[in-house]
């Protein structure tokens, strides 16, 4: 019990330690790749914690923002021959600017209406990436993307550092006046406004932050895969990111990191299923989500006395 408490209090430090040590155990390539992808996904998931977990709006378009960051880095690095670090910085900036544009509809649209705008956005990015072959390579993909640090471990440790910095910054945000304003907006925007918070500003800020983190994650994605194809940025991917946040407990940074590890590993473990892989993956997701309604988690919870894995879910879509 003592240990449990310690782990909970210093979760982030423990995770960091494990991540730093992990490569020293010379893991097999695919394990290493899964952890790398988990880190990259965690950055995006933390961004969604800020948006969905703290502030409330539901986005099914974050795969589009991930794509924006990935292609920004990829195109600037391969076609425009920018210095790599500049291309790397451009990714979150460009995604952030698009997040700004995406944030404005969020001021006027609620729940399902906003969700459709984000879905449409994700589709638009994908369609553009498919059709602008000159820039993106279209369906054939964008190949030979260079890495900021041309060595596996270098990229890995860069990502560990980035994830930890993002996590710490987000935790600081959470306890600050800004975080309090965001959390209050989620529950009652009207009252939050009456208390002097410029609700519109903060909502847009949440969109920009989470978009920028998606863009950063995208730059790492480009470095990991070194090849970009529009098929990697579908609504399934957007939904998967949401799932990481939900499984992680909605507004928990550490939860999002852990959940992104689990959710990232799953489809990779299923690779041997080949063509049936996505089907099985989707069915597993369904079961994970559906499970609680059958009382399975309740039983687990009773047995292990821990908080439920799936957050009770906050009412996001207003019933009209």
């Amino acid at each position: 019990m003592r240990l449990g408490n310690f782990l909970r209090k210093n979760a982030l430090a423990v995770i960091a330690l494990v991540l730093v040590i992990f490569p020293l155990t010379s893991p097999p390539d695919y394990q290493f790749y899964i952890v790398e992808r988990s880190l990259q996904n965690a950055i995006l998931a933390i961004g969604l914690v800020i948006l969905l977990g703290y502030t409330g709006p539901l986005s099914l378009g974050h795969a589009g923002l991930l794509a924006t960051g990935a292609y920004t880095y990829g195109i600037l690095a391969t076609k425009a021959h920018w210095p790599l670090w500049l291309a790397f910085l451009a990714a979150p900036v460009v995604a952030g600017v698009i997040g700004l544009a995406l944030g404005f509809p969020s001021l006027r649209l609620k729940g399902p209406f906003l969700m459709v705008v984000t879905i449409a956005f994700g589709e638009i990015v994908r369609i553009v990436a498919l059709n602008e072959e000159e820039l993106t390579g279209g369906p054939y993909g964008l190949q030979g993307i260079p890495r900021l640090i041309n060595n596996d471990l270098g990229v890995y440790y860069l990502m560990v550092a980035a994830t930890m910095l993002v996590a710490i910054a987000t935790l600081r945000l959470h306890r600050s006046r800004i975080g309090l304003a965001l959390l209050s907006i989620k529950e009652d925007p009207l009252v939050t406004g009456v208390m002097g918070v410029d609700v519109s500003n903060y909502k847009v800020m949440a969109f920009v932050l989470s978009a920028a983190l998606a863009g950063l994650s995208g730059a790492f994605f480009a470095m990991l895969t070194r090849y970009l194809n529009p098929d990697s940025f579908t609504i399934l991917d957007s939904a998967t990111y949401l799932l990481m946040v939900v499984l992680g407990g909605m507004d928990s940074v550490v939860g999002a990191i852990l959940a992104s590890g689990v959710v990232t590993a799953l489809p990779e473990i299923l690779r041997f299923m080949e063509r049936a892989r996505l089907l099985v993956y989707a069915i597993i997701l369904l079961l994970v989500i559906w499970g609680p309604s059958t009382g399975v988690y309740k039983k687990l919870e009773d047995r292990f006395g821990r908080k439920s894995v799936v957050a009770p879910g906050v009412k996001l879509v207003d019933r009209g």
Binding site: L58, S238, A239, L242, V246, L279, A282, K315
Partner: peptide
Amino acid sequence: FGPSVILIGTVALSVA
């Protein structure tokens, strides 16, 4: 459940 959870479920259903 929050609509977000169920929505993710329907996306998974769609993929299935």
